[in-house]
Design a protein around this nucleic acid. Structure first.
Lengths: 342, 342
DNA sequence: CTGAAAGCGCTTACAG
DNA sequence: CTGAAAGCGCTTACAG
C-alpha cells in the first residue's frame, strides 16, 4: 500500500463504494453529504491515509491559501520575531507561508515576483522590503493583495502597517530633553526607508519644540558596523554629543559596544536610546531604553488587512500607524520629574 | 487586459498563433521548439505578462519544487540565521520554502505533516524539531525525503546533519582543564534532544580524560530563564563552580547576564563557554568563548542530502557530523600554554 | 518541429 | 443527498 505513491480521491471512492464527487464533498466544508456517506468515506480515507491534494484544489478554486512572505535582514532580531508571529497568525487562519529572502535590490524583487505569481499566492506580505512601482503595478494587475509590514510607501497606494514612527521620534526627543541633554545626536535608520525617515523627522520636530536642533545627524543605514563607526567618530569629535538616538535597537547594541570599547559609560557619559524593543533590549548587558513597536498588534493588523483584501478584492488599500510606547530602561538618563510630559 | 484575471497558456497561444502545447514547450527546459516559434511565443508572453502556473505544472510532473521547512525557537539567533541560509540555498537550486512554525509537541507535528503532505512538498527539512516514529513512517510511506538539521535521531533511519557535538563537548572540557579549572559545571542543553545529550556526553568524557567529573550538571532545557536560574543557584551553593559550560550560546548570554547581576565577573570569577557561535557571541557585551557550528557547511550538507534523496528516492538516509572548532574569546580564562592540546 | 488529445486530482454546477 | 461530466492550466506521449 505504501509503494503506490499518492492516494487519490478515486482510491478512497472505490474503497468506500461511493463516487469520487462524494469523497470530495466530505472534505469540502459546507458541502451536503449524508452522515452515513461521510462516515464511510472518512473510514476509507483514514485507512488509506488520504488527504486532498491542496494543489489540485487550489487550481479549481483559484485560491492557493498560500501567502508569500518576503523578508530581508534576518540579523536584526526584530524580523525573526516578526516572521514567527506572522507565520503563526497565518497558520491559525488556515494559510501557509511561502518564504522568500530578498536583498533590497530592484532586480531581486522582480525575480521574486515572478515566483510569487507563478505559485498563485493569494496575497503577499513584505517585511522591510522596498517595492518598485513596477512591482506594485504587477501585483494589482494580477489582482494580488499586498501589505507592507514595518515600511510605508507614500503615494504607492499600497497597504502598510507601521508603528507611529514620527511620534516615536518625538517621544524620544522629549525624553532626552527632559533628561537634561542638550547635545542630542541621531544615528538614523536608512533614509531611503520610510521608517528611518519618519523617526528622524519626529526627533527633529520634537527637538524643535524645545528650541533645539540635532547636534548631529548621520545615516547609520540600519547597519551595525556603520552605526558603530559613526558613533566612534561622533565621540572623537570636538564637541561630542551627550545623548544619541540610534534609529533601531539592532544598531544601538553595536553603538553601546563601541562606546564601551572606548572606555565610555552608558548612560553616565552618553545616553543611548534605540527603537523597536526587540527581546534583546531587555537583556542585562544592554538594558536599552527604547520605543516599543507593538509586535502583536502590528502582526494582527497586517494579517487582518491582508485577509480583508483577499476576501474582498475591491477593498481599498489601508495604511495603519500603531502607537509605540517609550520603554524606560537604564541606557538613558531618566528625567528627574518622571511626569515630564512623557 | 489587467482585469481578466490570470493569463493562461491559451491566451498566449492565441496571440502568438500557435498551439497551447507549443507555448508549454517554450517554457519547458529541454523541449524542442523552433527558434522562430519560441520567439513568437516569448513576445506574446511578455506582452501579456504570462508565467506558467506552477501549481498546474506541479500536478502533472508530480514535483512541486516546494520544500517544507519546519522550525521552532526563533528566539535563539542560531535559527534565523539557519532559515536565511537554508532559504537562500534552496532558492538558488530552484526550490521554494513553505515555512512552518512548530512547537515541539507531538500533536503539533502531526498536524503540520498533514499540511506538508497536502501541499505535495518534494522534501522536508526540520530544524531542531523532534519527530515521532509515526511521522517518520508517514513520510516514507508517502515517499517524501526528510532531513533533520541540527538534531539527530538515532535509530530513526532519518538523514541528519549536525556538528560533531560530542567532540565539541570534549574540546570544551580540555580547554577548561588546560585553563586550570577544576570545578567545571555544565548547564546542559535539553536532554531530550540529541544535541543536548551529545554535548553533555562529550564534556563528561573530556573531563574523564583528566580524571575529573562534572562539578554539577543540570538541564537548562535550551531555555534562557531556566539557565539563568540554574546558574544563580550554582553560584549560591557551598562550592560554586569555577567554570560553566552552557549547552548553547542562547542560554550562555542569559547566564552571563545573571552572573553579572550578582556582581560576579566573567571570566575572573567564573569562566563561561557556550556552543553555536551565533553572531551575537562576537559582540562586545558578551565576547563569548564557544564552539562554532559551521553554519554554511551544515546548510550545504542539508540541502545536498535532501536534493540527492529527491532526485534518487532509493538512496539511503545519511547522517553527517561536521567538525566544530573552538572559538577562543574573552569569557573563559585561556590556558597559559596556548598549545595545550587544543 | 508541431498540434490534437489525454490526463494530473480535484471542485462544482447539473440533473436526478 | 448523489453521480456523471466538465473543466482548472498545464505536460507529455502520440502521430504526423
Amino acid at each position: 500500500m505504501s509503494m503506490t505513491g499518492r492516494i487519490t480521491a478515486q482510491d478512497v471512492a472505490k474503497l468506500a463504494g461511493v463516487s469520487q464527487s462524494a469523497v470530495s464533498r466530505v472534505f469540502t466544508p459546507g458541502a451536503s453529504v449524508a452522515a452515513a456517506t461521510a462516515a464511510k468515506v472518512r473510514a476509507a480515507a483514514t485507512a488509506l491515509g488520504y488527504r486532498p491534494n491542496s494543489l489540485a484544489r487550489a487550481m479549481i478554486t483559484g485560491k492557493s491559501r498560500i501567502i508569500g512572505l518576503v523578508v530581508a535582514h534576518l540579523d536584526n532580531q526584530f524580523y525573526p520575531v516578526a516572521i514567527e508571529k506572522l507565520s503563526v497568525a497565518l497558520q491559525a487562519k488556515g494559510y501557509h507561508v511561502l518564504l522568500f529572502m530578498a536583498s533590497n535590490t530592484e532586480g531581486e524583487m522582480e525575480r521574486l515576483m515572478e515566483d510569487l505569481l507563478a505559485y498563485q499566492v493569494d496575497g503577499i506580505i513584505t517585511a522591510s522590503v522596498a517595492i518598485s512601482n513596477d512591482v506594485t503595478r504587477r501585483c494589482s494587475d494580477a489582482g494580488i493583495p499586498l501589505v507592507m509590514f514595518n515600511r510605508g510607501q507614500p503615494e504607492s497606494g499600497l497597504s502598510a502597517i507601521t508603528s507611529a514612527n514620527a511620534l516615536g521620534g518625538r517621544k524620544i526627543a522629549r525624553l532626552l530633553v527632559a533628561g537634561g541633554h542638550r547635545r542630542i545626536a541621531h544615528i538614523s535608520g536608512w533614509q531611503e526607508a520610510s521608517t528611518g525617515r519618519d523617526r528622524a523627522r519626529g526627533l527633529v520636530e520634537g527637538l524643535a519644540e524645545a528650541g533645539l536642533a540635532p547636534h548631529a545627524m548621520i545615516d547609520g543605514l540600519f547597519n551595525r558596523d556603520t552605526a558603530a563607526e559613526v558613533a566612534r567618530q561622533m565621540m572623537l569629535g570636538p564637541t561630542p554629543p551627550d545623548a544619541i538616538f540610534v534609529g533601531n535597537d539592532h544598531m544601538a547594541f553595536a553603538v553601546i559596544d563601541a562606546l564601551r570599547a572606548m572606555g565610555l559609560r552608558v548612560p553616565e557619559d552618553v545616553s543611548i536610546v534605540g527603537y523597536d524593543d526587540v527581546p534583546m533590549a531587555a537583556w542585562g548587558a544592554y538594558d536599552l531604553t527604547t520605543v516599543r513597536q507593538p509586535m502583536m498588534r502590528m502582526v494582527e493588523a497586517t494579517v487582518e488587512t491582508l485577509i480583508a483584501q483577499i476576501d474582498d478584492p475591491t477593498r481599498a488599500a489601508q495604511s495603519l500607524e500603531i502607537d509605540a510606547p517609550l520603554i524606560l530602561r537604564g541606557s538613558a538618563r531618566r528625567p528627574e520629574d518622571d511626569n515630564a510630559g512623557l
